[in-house]
């Protein structure tokens, strides 16, 4: 650990030459992206190095409690990021954190229960990170889609309510559309995996010297786990967040609409 570890990471900076291509393209075509690229390069280096040290530290502790603590922190950060993207959705932070947390606990818990992966930091942190990251994106997408659609389709929602529909019945087409759009990307990438691209986890394992079939086994676990967790997060956040746009008397909250 320490300076030696930092030295290891620093050799990655040699790959900065590739970033220069992106910067050159941005400048040449006047895309105005060089500032963003700079921020992205610095942030990714700092964040990844930091989490690398954190993970290494947690590995050293050999205590599953710290792993759980780290994952809980990631869930909260994921909930916060998600709620910032779903501006205008009441209690978005609480809803997103709850949905991401449940998705992580259920899927990772099931993997442990079925003894598909061992209860070690080496498995739990990367797998948990993937579940949390994907659930976070799903939560953001689902909440923003519901927020936008309820505003855009206000007339349809009111027409259904006026016919005696409950809030749930009136919002049901919107809920379905938002769940579909949140789940389609992960379903599509699950369909094409291995044909069009090799996912990061599997590529990493193969590069790291693992047996390709062992890498495949883990990747299959990862894909199924992500399908499950994304579905859980989408359904939970959908069912929880649409309620915020209605009163208990099945009325739209007009002040929340755009």
């Amino acid at each position: 650990m320490g300076l030696e570890g930092l030295g290891t990471v620093a050799t990655a900076l040699l790959a900065l030459g590739l970033v220069a291509v992106a910067v050159a393209l941005s400048l040449y075509e006047r895309l105005g992206l060089q500032g963003d690229i700079g921020v992205a390069v610095v942030r990714s280096f700092v964040q990844l190095t930091a989490i690398g040290f954190v993970i290494q530290f947690v590995f050293g502790l050999e205590n599953i409690g710290y792993v759980a603590l780290l994952l809980a922190g990631m869930v909260a950060f994921g909930g916060w990021t998600s709620s910032r993207r779903a501006e205008g959705v009441p209690r978005a932070f609480v809803l997103a954190t709850a949905a991401i947390g449940v998705a992580a606990v259920v899927t990772v818990g099931l993997l442990l229960l079925l003894q598909i992966v061992p209860p070690t930091a080496r498995y739990l942190i990367p797998l948990g990170g993937m579940v949390i990251g994907n659930s976070m994106n799903t939560a953001s997408l689902t909440m923003s889609r519901i927020r936008d659609d309820v505003s855009e389709q206000r007339l349809k929602v009111e027409a259904a309510l006026a016919l005696g529909a409950t809030s749930r019945q009136a919002v049901s087409p919107i809920l379905k559309a938002s769940l579909r759009s949140a789940m389609i990307p992960i379903i599509d990438s699950t369909k094409t995996v291995g044909l069009v691209f090799l996912p990061g986890a599997m590529a990493g394992m193969i590069i790291g010297g693992a047996d390709p079939l062992e890498a495949v086994r883990l990747q299959i676990v990862v894909m199924y786990m992500l399908l499950g967790s994304v579905s859980i997060a989408a359904i939970l956040v959908g069912l929880l967040s649409y309620r915020s746009f209605f009163t208990p008397r099945h009325q739209l909250r007009a002040s929340l609409l755009k």
Binding site: L155, K156, E158, A159, A162, G164, A165, R249, Q251
Partner: peptide, 19 residues
């Protein structure tokens, strides 16, 4: 009950909004 009330009072809007 609001759901019961809305069945007893029909409403037609500016646009049809059919399902």
């Amino acid at each position: 009950d609001p759901l019961e009330l809305r069945r007893r009072i029909g409403m037609v809007f500016q646009l049809p909004a059919l399902f």
